[in-house]
Design a protein around this nucleic acid. Structure first.
Length: 381
DNA sequence: ATAGGGTTAG
């Protein structure tokens, strides 16, 4: 097995495309000094082929946003205006979106206003990017104004994406009824709501436990021949779990399976969150976890933190230990590092010293420093 | 250009 993976690795790493990506990510991820990250970005984007690498832009801006280096984000994105690419609406739209995702709405708005001077035409694409920037930077209250006023001023006709974005904004603000009214408005405008429209609304409706509205949405989907996907079903499942109707939730999952849907990590995590509210469901949670493994659905950090907390609360440290081993194996990093120590302590209390020692050892071997400090507890007895 | 995530700590 290892020789095959070695061969594969060699085959891939020798390709130039991969090695240039590796070089980029080295600068973007490994460099500790954010100023150097920004400098490297500006230097790289002098090369026109780099200006087409959207991932490079996203990773760099994300990295700078994580450290709240907003003036550097401004620096590297404003620097892009010197290139002729800025006359390409798609390029400018991406910059607007990057400002939005960084929470820098004013910059996004300013860039949108400057587009004519930059000889960049504005269509519904950049209009939608502006609306999206409101949502991403949580300026939800601004969305409605732009939605009502800009189309007339710029003679742009809102499309399905525009409506979806405004619907999302209303949902985020808790104005579910306004969001649902927009769905009717779409129909009047001759626009067909799509899967994304319905998934935004289903999510919002079931979080508010408005099952009746939910049923209406399902029948509308049917009317529009929109085929629900796993995200749609997971929303309804979340509603049932939030209502603490675990039997109905499990029945619904069976229904999903009978429809041939493939459960994903969200489905399982929603189920676990429901089971874990109540101590009596540990067996059931473990059963579904086994199911998850059997179906080769990889657990993620939410799976681990939910189940680990539950295992500790119920003093099932054997299950806890199994989770920890898997978590190491999957190189998953938890936000709450205390959880693994709790499992180790629990194992020792239950006199399972050797298993506790294994977890400490695996933690020391881990490449993540957060696990290196795990230790065997010393209880006074 | 638009859709999915729960809790918490030295």
């Amino acid at each position: 097995m290892s020789s095959i993976s070695l061969l594969l690795r060699r085959a891939f790493s020798s390709s130039s495309a991969i090695s240039s990506v590796t070089k980029i990510s080295k600068v973007v991820y490994k460099e500790a000094d954010v100023k150097k990250v920004a400098e490297a970005f500006k230097k790289h984007t002098q090369n026109s082929s780099f200006r087409k690498k959207t991932n490079f832009y996203e990773h760099t801006v994300q990295r700078l946003a994580n450290t709240k280096s907003f003036s550097l984000i401004e620096e590297i994105l404003e620097d892009q205006k010197q290139y002729k690419d800025i006359t390409d609406e798609g390029f400018t739209v991406r910059l607007i979106t990057l400002y939005g995702k960084s929470g820098m709405f004013d910059h996004a708005h300013k860039l949108f206003d400057e587009m004519p001077e930059l000889s960049c035409k504005r269509t519904v694409l950049s209009y939608n990017a502006l609306l999206g920037a409101c949502v991403n930077s949580k300026k939800f209250d601004k969305v409605d104004g732009f939605f009502r006023e800009l189309p007339g001023k710029l003679s742009i006709k809102p499309d399905v994406v525009s409506y979806n974005t405004v619907i999302k904004a209303f949902c985020e603000m808790g104005s579910l009824d306004s969001a649902l009214l927009l769905l009717d408005e779409m129909e009047k405008e001759g626009l067909r709501p799509d899967l994304i429209t319905f998934n935004i609304l289903l999510d919002a409706v079931y979080r508010k436990l408005r099952f009746l509205e939910g049923e209406k949405l399902w029948s509308m989907m049917d009317k529009y021949n929109v085929v629900p996907d796993i995200i749609s079903y997971n929303s309804r499942l979340r509603g049932l779990v939030l209502e603490e109707k675990m039997q109905d939730a499990v029945d619904f999952v069976q229904e999903m399976l009978s429809k041939g849907l493939k459960l994903d990590v969200y489905t399982y995590n929603i189920l676990f969150s429901g089971f874990c509210k109540d101590g009596k469901y540990l067996e059931e949670a473990i059963k579904w976890f086994d199911e998850m493994m059997k179906n080769k659905c990889p657990p993620d950090r939410l799976t681990f933190s939910t189940l680990l907390r539950y295992a500790c609360r119920n003093k099932d440290f054997r299950f806890g230990s199994r989770l920890c081993r898997l978590l190491y194996y999957r190189r998953c990093r938890l936000n709450e590092r205390g959880l693994i120590q709790k499992v180790i302590d629990g194992l020792v209390r239950q006199s399972n010293i050797s298993e506790a020692e294994i977890l400490v050892k695996l933690g020391k071997d881990s490449r993540y420093s957060c696990y290196n400090s795990l230790k065997m507890p010393k209880f006074d007895t």
